[in-house]
Design a protein around this nucleic acid. Structure first.
Lengths: 342, 342
DNA sequence: TTTAGCACTCTCCTTGTTCGAGTGCTAATA
DNA sequence: TATTAGCACTCGAACAAGGAGAGTGCTAAA
């Protein structure tokens, strides 16, 4: 499809553009890259690459800039061959990954911060709400007046707390009976199953004293409804240093979109259906507001089931090699932790 | 100190400057405010106000701009009199506060988002780590291999989960005994007390089988050490719309500072020693990076003890009346919730 | 097929100029 | 005596013109 020479030139353009934005001309390529060709020849080739849609000219008589398809081609070639291994980056990564291992409580927060610090882009980590989470135990405690603390212990890394308000006061004994009943009934089922069947089942069951039934149903509905996922975002200040973001309106829209965690969540949910690192370049992104940015994401799993994802958001002019490396390694590391501690 | 006329002019300058930035001149004051004075007179007064340090001139023959002391004077006058009650804002506020009541689980997140949405500045809410939190119960459960889930149920709204790793496996029976022991020993004490006395006490106590002692100490140290607080920040995209932030470097430094939640936490901790809404204007702020911004904060309490705080960060050219109103009402509302549900 | 040379184009930066808003000062006025 | 009108002056924003520099496309030569 593309001869070797054209590929080399395309890569050269992209790498120059990544290291500093602004159209790259034929002359600067000959200077920085030892291809035995004159600027004129390179101009011809670049013209061809432009016809093929891999490069474009911001205006007549400016240098060339990669298009999204250009990046796509570059990234596809990148994942095929060995990614660049910056030794310093690697050791820094290992050091920070250890932090994640030792502080499993806030590993999501740590992971997102680490990704942003090492990549200098935005780091994101989420625990997915797959509805496939399995309940391993439920605990209920009286908390305050008319409030009950419910703890769902799932087979994920996350324990979910809920404080729910109830109409009438419920005694500790009743709570224990209710919890015991629920445990017996539902331990080992997915949260989604529980939510679906619970109303019907409980309504039919005579094991509970009738006065408690309505309360129980209310509680269960509340607890098992939308089990929220966690989303951590770090490094917003990082991208403000990039020259790409001189246009403040663009950043604003990006931030606005990212702040709506639900959006991020559903995007990453979609991405983590496939395993291994995924790259969405510019317009490949389903969300309009993110079409000017790129997304590098990978799910982490427990066993074979993805239970979360981490990601990097940056400009389309992103250091893809490094980003993919970081995301991939981190996801694998977290997956390892989960399979180890079983 | 200041005669009535000067005050009126100062307020006029500040209000005009708040509604749109850029030096305000004598002419525009006479247009927008029905003071029966000519521009020339106002010029004289403004010149006096400048000498007193309440206004300043960006350059010769430009209009005047309020200084930090100008804002301070304005804010002090504001809190004395009745703050402006925008009916629409008030009803919107009530509506959103109800959301906080019904979703007590993520009320901090909701509160920060609400503050930013209504004020169009940055909204912050934290639960303070006062070390005065009282432990009401502790639960321990085996979680995964070599991991224990510990739940601290405190008398705050927050339940703290910790998953901690242990060297040797601990049986469920041992865990129960340990938990029972800890409950008996420490329920009703503050976390700080527990952390201080725990090592000595446990080491001396023979009630535990000896093999468990080292594990227990490790667990307790881990659990009671730095009990992290929650920090929620919303509305970063809001401030990007403000014309004040055309200088991208300034925003970057602000974001960078805010992203370090520890900084925010200690700042709000200091502020919430005093009760009622506090205002830090520009250079009054202890942190260098925030000296170009203003901070409106108020603690919320359980009983008389502050257990958290909410805040708004915006430009010094902030709508102080509205911000104070929002923060004050919200803090009071949250305080109410806590005293009610007792 | 590749390269050298040349004319052309476009952006960026600098310089000069104008325009308008606003001030400070002084003299006139109530 | 306090206020106002008038006037000269200052400064920044906005606009235009011009030159420098980088880069291209095309043509002709190697």
């Amino acid at each position: 499809m593309l001869d070797d020479r054209s590929k080399k030139i395309l890569h050269a353009v992209i790498q120059l553009y990544i290291s500093s934005p602004g159209p790259v001309g034929s002359r600067s390529i000959t200077k920085k890259f030892p291809i035995g060709l004159s600027p004129a020849t390179i101009r011809n080739i670049m013209s061809d690459l432009e016809d093929m849609g891999f490069l474009r000219q911001p205006h007549t008589s400016a240098g060339r800039v990669p298009t999204d398809s250009g990046y796509r081609f570059y990234v596809d070639a990148l994942t095929a061959e060995k990614s660049d291994n910056d030794a310093e980056l690697a050791s820094e990564l290992i050091r920070k990954l250890e932090l994640i291992r030792t502080d499993i409580n806030s590993f999501l927060d740590n992971a997102s911060r680490m990704l942003s610090e090492l990549s200098h882009y935005i780091g994101i980590s989420v625990s997915l709400n797959t509805h496939q989470t399995m309940l391993s135990r439920i605990e209920m405690l009286p908390y305050r007046k008319n409030q009950i603390a419910v703890m769902l212990i799932t087979d994920e890394a996350v324990i979910r707390n809920k404080i729910i308000s109830v109409e009438q006061e419920v005694s500790r004994e009743d709570l224990n009976r209710l919890a015991g009943y629920l445990n017996e009934r539902f331990a080992g089922h997915t949260l989604e199953d529980i939510r679906k069947t619970i109303v019907a089942e409980i309504a039919n069951d005579r094991m509970l004293c009738d006065g408690l039934i309505s309360e129980a149903m209310a509680i269960c509905n509340n607890v098992f409804s939308a089990s929220e996922s966690d989303v951590f975002i770090s490094g917003l200040s990082e991208v403000l240093t990039l020259p790409d973001f001189c246009d403040i309106e663009r950043i604003r829209r990006l931030f606005r979109t990212i702040e709506d965690k639900q959006v991020i969540l559903s995007l990453l949910e979609k991405i983590s259906a496939t395993d291994g690192p995924q790259v969405l370049i510019g317009s490949e992104n389903p969300l309009d507001e993110l079409k000017q940015f790129s997304f590098v994401a990978a799910p982490y799993c427990e066993g074979n089931r993805p239970i979360g994802a981490i990601a990097i958001i940056g400009p389309t002019r992103m250091n893809y090699g490094q980003a993919i490396y970081l995301v991939d390694m981190t996801a694998k590391f977290i997956t390892d932790i989960f399979s180890y501690s079983r």
